[in-house]
Amino acid sequence: MFDVYACFYTGVLLLIVGSIATVIGPGVKDPIIRTINTEVPAIGISLILLTYNHTVALLTYIAASLIIMMILLRAVVRLEELEADV
């Protein structure tokens, strides 16, 4: 049995905890760790979209978050190869 409220509040919990972890979590001085931490709220928002039955939005969000992850990691790696202090 699919419990809507359990799904929704798990999503909310993951979202809030994940965004706090992204802002002040352990080891976030390293940009790669901060980027990987953004995956936790991404799972939370996927659960919330699932609760509302937004199928197309959920599928597009999964694809978009993958591309955003690739863009961010590319930016981090390129800037580190430059040895830039940003």
């Binding site: 979202l15 992204t22 901060r34 980027t35 940003v86």
Partner: peptide, 25 residues
């Protein structure tokens, strides 16, 4: 203060926007 971190955190603000839109259901 560091730009790349600001860029990553922009992603989090975007998630907040998504939920507010999704809440209409």
């Amino acid at each position: 203060k560091r730009d790349i971190h600001v860029l990553i955190l922009t992603d989090i603000v975007g998630l907040g926007m998504l939920i507010i839109v999704a809440a209409v259901g």
